[in-house]
């Protein structure tokens, strides 16, 4: 409410100038306080993941032998020992491990979202544009894949083919595009009837060119919003797998694995092992949700 009002004020005083759809959306987005806060948090977390390894005095696999055996006291977060976040139960530096876990979790989230954007959008656009029997078959396939408890299949895949980052991406890629395909299809169905698509068809543009040049650019708004909201759910999937001990292998780690380790040590009075990874997990998810909501408000044609 406030955001749109102040945008209106700005626009009333500004000199007359053509505004593109995207500039309009950008202005709306930056007037949304929650979304901007979320964006700042996300940038901070990304900086943490990228710069962390260069400023951490320890790395993520070395054991601090001075701490081993008395982690409860010696492993506390402190500036003197260089363990800013403390150590884990094995005496490894938690700051370095959190940095490394953040990298993996963000990577999984972004790769999952990318797969969904590329595969799901194309799939949905093709199904929606061609319609008829093609659409029917393509969407039935999505229905079938959606009704399978994919988490169990993913765990099966990880156990059968061995745990690796690659397998994790394969598993996440298998499921992440389904919702996107549905959304893209629905949007394509409404776009299909528009005059400019008809004009393109009438002038003899080939179907795939129409999809790539006219349909997909017009889907982007919805796709971006949904992709932003998809990143946190991908992060949650990966953390879930890691929580079960089936994710990336030691010494690599991720938020889910760190949270699991921390939760296992909870009764020993070493709460920092749980709180640090949990903090990063929670603020990042909040960040993505707020940015996603902000983008939706900024880009959703329904609210205009």
């Amino acid at each position: 409410m406030f955001a749109t009002k102040s945008v209106a004020d700005d626009l009333a005083t500004a000199p007359l100038k053509g505004r593109s759809l995207w500039a309009d959306a950008r202005a709306r987005f930056f007037h949304n306080r929650a979304a901007v806060t979320g964006l700042i948090v996300l940038i901070a977390v990304a900086c943490f993941a990228i710069m962390g390894p260069f400023i951490a005095p320890w790395n993520n696999e070395d054991i601090d032998w001075n701490v081993l055996g008395n982690v409860q006291t010696g492993g506390r977060p402190s500036l003197e020992t260089g363990h800013w976040f403390g150590t884990d139960a094995l005496g490894r530096d938690l700051f370095a491990r959190t940095v490394q876990g953040t990298q993996i979790s963000l990577l999984v989230g972004i790769v999952g979202a990318l797969i969904s954007v590329i595969v799901g959008t194309l799939y949905g656009a093709v199904a929606g544009y061609f319609g008829g029997r093609i659409d029917n078959v393509m969407m039935r396939v999505v229905d079938v894949l959606m009704s399978i408890p994919y988490m169990f299949v993913l765990i099966l895949l990880l156990v059968v083919f061995g745990r690796s980052l690659f397998m994790l991406f394969v598993g996440i890629g298998l499921v992440s595009w389904l919702d996107m395909a549905r959304i893209a299809r629905g949007q394509t169905l409404t776009l299909k009837g528009k005059a400019y698509i008809e004009a393109a068809r009438a002038t003899g543009v080939r179907p795939f060119t129409i999809i790539l040049r006219h349909i997909i650019p017009n889907l982007l708004g919805v796709v971006i919003v949904y992709a932003t909201l998809l990143v946190p759910s991908m992060i949650i999937y990966e953390s879930f797998i890691s929580f079960l001990g089936l994710g990336v292998q030691e010494p690599l780690t991720s938020w889910g694995a760190l949270i699991n380790d921390g939760a296992a040590e909870m009764t020993n009075g070493t709460l920092w092992m749980l709180t640090w990874p949990l903090l990063f997990f929670v603020i990042t998810l909040f960040g993505f949700f707020f940015v996603g909501d902000g983008l939706r408000d900024a880009l959703d044609p329904k609210d205009r």
Binding site: I236, S239, F243, G262, M266, T267, L271, L285, F286
Partner: peptide, 22 residues
Amino acid sequence: SIGAQVLPNFVLAPILVLTFTL
């Protein structure tokens, strides 16, 4: 509902145990 979004079951479970049990 916003708060619960960022607390999937595997995160909520340790928090619950910490609070209500410990």
